[in-house]
């Protein structure tokens, strides 16, 4: 089979391959770094950071569902300063792109975090305006175009040369509205989808499995929703690169997201069954590209032939 060029570009940042570990499923890389060289990955989206340390929500925080999981972790993290001091130097040892995922309670907090992360030197900042598991901020910013624009603008003003990627929520009527708002406010890239709000109930105890009652759905069950939304967003704002995610566990899933318009893909929930899932997705993508006679995997992006 011919050699396939796996390199892709995301908001001007070159990734050695299109596969990124999704935020919230990969910690700060240390755990999966026990299984393989983190330099095998195109990039790592770190666990969602907040201005100060958060302990997250009470357990249970996970429920298994048909071909999916619900989670309600609630952004447990050591805070942006501890990340910069203790985790970033570790991640910097590896030949991979480091993407910092941030959530703020106010637009100003997003700005402050961007300033610190930009100074510390990350490759990309993923602005999370779509976490379904926190009360303040989070999802609220991702469901109202004017707030999404405000947060995006604030992040851009403080991120310096580091590109800003805005992470969109699927829990909206029309995702293209939010995508356009973020684009107009200067976003360099978009990532989607975050989890879909869901609930599971134990019929014997009549209690929800999750202590927070509801949580975010991820896993293979959400892949078709992700493909549809990436396609809609790519059509609405074709100039903005997209990091596609939602239920990717194999090369074909990733290829679907790329054909729909994603420049790169993130792998998350699949890691829980298989720590090597991101590498298998990368190899699967390479095989598909080779089978189709492509010399570069990036030519899949947006190449869907809709009816």
């Amino acid at each position: 089979m011919p050699e396939v060029d796996l390199r892709v570009s995301l908001a001007g940042v070159e990734l050695k391959n299109p596969v990124v570990a999704a935020s919230g499923t990969f910690g700060f890389g240390r755990e999966y770094g026990q299984f393989y060289d983190l330099g095998e990955l195109g990039g790592i989206c770190v666990k969602g950071l907040t201005a100060t340390r958060r302990e997250g929500n009470p357990a249970p925080r996970i429920a298994e569902t048909p071909m999916g999981i619900l989670n309600s972790v609630g952004l447990q993290n050591p805070g942006v300063d501890a990340f910069i001091a203790e985790e970033l130097p570790f991640l910097r040892q590896f030949d991979t792109r480091v993407i910092a995922n941030i959530s703020g309670n106010t637009p100003e907090e997003y700005g402050e975090m961007c300033e610190k992360l930009s100074a510390a030197g990350v490759d990309l900042i993923e602005v999370n305006i779509s976490c379904p598991n926190v009360k303040a901020g989070g999802l609220a910013y991702g469901t109202r175009p004017e707030l999404a624009a405000e947060v995006t603008g604030e992040a851009k003003r403080h991120a310096g040369k580091v590109p800003v990627m805005v992470k969109l929520s699927p829990n909206v009527t029309d995702i293209t509205e939010i995508a356009r708002a973020a684009a107009d406010a200067g976003a360099d890239a978009l990532s989607l989808i975050n989890t879909l709000r869901g609930m599971r109930i134990d019929v014997d105890t009549r209690r929800p499995i999750l202590k927070m009652n509801t949580g975010g759905l991820s896993g293979p069950a959400v892949l078709p929703v992700a493909v549809r939304m990436v396609w809609e967003v790519h059509t609405a704002v074709p100039h903005l690169p997209i990091l596609g995610m939602g239920g990717v566990s194999g090369g074909e899933d990733a290829a679907q997201l790329m054909l729909a318009g994603a420049s790169a893909v993130a792998v998350g929930t699949a890691l829980f069954a298989d720590p090597y899932a991101p590498l298998k997705v990368r190899d699967g993508l390479r095989d598909i590209a080779a089978r189709q006679g492509l010399d570069k995997v990036r030519s899949l992006t947006g190449a869907v032939r809709p009816w």
């Binding site: 919230g24 240390r30 755990e31 997250g56 929500n57 999981i69």
Partner: peptide
């Protein structure tokens, strides 16, 4: 209830006496 099993996904929280999880 556990997810990844290796400490990456943070779902299997246990409340500690010092207020951390």
């Amino acid at each position: 209830r556990m997810g990844c099993g290796v400490g990456a996904c943070l779902v299997c929280a246990c409340d500690m006496a010092d207020g951390t999880r």
